[in-house]
Amino acid sequence: MPIDIEKLTNTLLEGEEDHAWELIENKAELMENSHLTFEVLTSAMQLVGKLWEENKITVADEHLATTTCDYVLSRYAYTKKKSKQSPNGKRALFLCIDQEQHYLGLKMISLLFEEYGWETRLLGANLPLEYAVHTVKKWQPSVVGISVAILYHAEQLKNYVSELGTLQSQPEILVGGRLASNYDLTKYCSENTVLVPGLKEIKLWLEEQKGDVSNHG
């Protein structure tokens, strides 16, 4: 890791958003490479989870760390806006399923897509299926990215995948999040669903898509 994760985690837990930002901003490597920055922030949030398991912090602290991390992400995205690739004309919609509040990962993925020239909409946490369906019908994205972190939400995921799969526009469905990284979710998905365990895989996927675009001229 290019920076001290423990230090970063502490600034997140203390709500020191400016300090956290400086840690990122001062590393040229991170400012150049979003993928690396998201990896670093993911590790920091995972460390937050570990500290909770060790009874060193409470969920209230996790909330503050989340807000601070979110700020850093937004600021990062803003700074990187200038270096975005030219629009590729494709749309991607991102959402967390109903009751799912863990949206940080989803936000990272949506930012990554933007950088690759996609037009994105981040519907964020806790999106009831009917809204998801409604938005897909109206906005016609070619990709819908779904995030799940809590084990009990796996059953729900099944409904999302099958319902969105029946829509006429046939968006490609990507499923990611903590559950996709830690469990085999195949039985909750359909044949066409793409399960994405983490950042590495999504980057590969994005690169592949880029290839596709240029092939079609």
Binding site: V59, A60, H63, T66, T67
Partner: peptide
């Protein structure tokens, strides 16, 4: 927590 969470939500929206 909910209370705190909603406060934070507000802050997030402001952000």
């Amino acid at each position: 927590i909910m209370e705190l969470s909603s406060m934070l939500q507000m802050q997030r929206d402001r952000l």
